[in-house]
Simulated scan of single mutants.
Amino acid sequence: MAVRLNLQTDVVRQHTVPRFLLKHFSTPGKGKRLRLYAFDKATGRTYATTPDDATVRNTFYNLDNHPERPSLEPLLGIYEHEAAPVIAGLLRHKDIRQLTADDRYKLAVFVAVQRARTFGELERISGIMSVLVNKMAAIGATEEQAGETLGLSAGGDTKDVFLRQLVHQVSHIDHLLNKDWYLIETKPEHPFYVSDNPVVLENRNDFGPYGNIGLAVPGIQIYLPLSSTLMLAMYCPSIRGKMVRDKQNLQQLLARSPHLIPRHMRPFDMLEHVNRHIDYLLIPLSAENVMYYNSLQVEYAEQYVFSRENEFSLVEKMLGDDERFRTGPRFTF
């Protein structure tokens, strides 16, 4: 017989990124407390903080206008509790192939929920709703009609929409499970950033006006830093398929016409790189590669970027080049 989950909580300070994950980007501070550094994109200020204090928003997951005043905080705690040992195992053995089917499911749930639970996601939903309400008003709909059509509560509270979509992640979990999974590693002297919106998406394909960002879009790449030196990558299967074809073409070229291969191409290094993808092996990064992946964290961060080191020159440069990075991504119509 199923036990009914109690969705009431006394927890006021609620984390939008779990403490256990932030600890993997921390170093020992004074006493027994862990410390990490934060960059506030809104103010340009850098400061030291702790996993206990970072990404905290009071009663963020509470449905305050509901008569029973439920909260999603207990449910999120379950997802975190199930994913934490899976991530700890990856940090220890660094082999994605050791995950069981159950491990993969728990981690897919965690990634899908983490992508949906941030303040940045609430801001994006609010922006979309505002644009749609204005568009509907322009064609004659009243504010009440627009709100009803979009599923807004009385008064147009987009937080209800945000919390509803947070618990409806089943299709997103399936998309993640259908990806090819990898672990990507950097050296301690070139640490990964993590942000208040840590699940980031990238796509090298160009689909013109249709856009190229979405969990089911061909060519999509999904990243979640797991620690300052290890990152989870989930790739569209088409990427590995291309790697297989590239390997076959390169092997044929080496066998039949090695004299046609330019010296700068370094074919054996290319084969090693391709084989790591084909065989799901740990993928090491150069310092330049790390900068690219850190730039995605800066781009997706709604307000805060975190690092174990007090080094945010990349953030400062990106903000200086483009004010668009002061917030996380926004949908446009």
Score class of each variant (00 low, 15 high):
186 T>W: 06
71 S>R: 02
208 G>T: 11
109 V>I: 10
104 R>Y: 08
133 V>S: 11
165 Q>W: 06
120 G>F: 00
241 G>D: 11
206 D>F: 05
311 E>N: 04
56 V>F: 13
68 E>T: 09
205 N>R: 13
101 A>I: 05
327 T>F: 15
33 R>Q: 12
175 H>G: 00
249 N>R: 15
156 G>E: 11
103 D>T: 14
222 I>H: 10
145 Q>Y: 03
118 T>I: 00
127 G>Q: 14
260 L>W: 02
239 I>T: 09
38 A>S: 08
30 K>W: 07
274 V>M: 14
248 Q>E: 13
77 G>T: 08
125 I>K: 05
70 P>D: 08
46 T>S: 12
69 R>L: 08
303 Q>C: 07
267 P>L: 03
210 Y>R: 10
265 M>Q: 08
260 L>N: 04
259 H>Q: 13
295 S>H: 04
100 T>Q: 02
306 F>A: 07
252 Q>M: 12
98 Q>G: 15
4 R>Q: 15
157 D>L: 10
267 P>R: 01
67 P>W: 12
291 M>T: 04
213 I>Q: 09
212 N>T: 12
138 A>L: 03
320 G>W: 07
270 M>R: 15
24 H>I: 02
150 L>T: 00
298 V>W: 10
30 K>G: 15
216 A>M: 13
91 L>P: 12
42 A>E: 10
163 L>C: 05
268 F>I: 05
140 G>M: 01
324 R>G: 11
294 N>W: 06
251 Q>I: 06
61 Y>V: 11
140 G>F: 03
21 L>W: 06
313 S>A: 10
125 I>V: 09
215 L>G: 09
16 T>F: 01
62 N>P: 00
95 D>G: 00
225 P>W: 01
242 K>Y: 12
113 V>F: 07
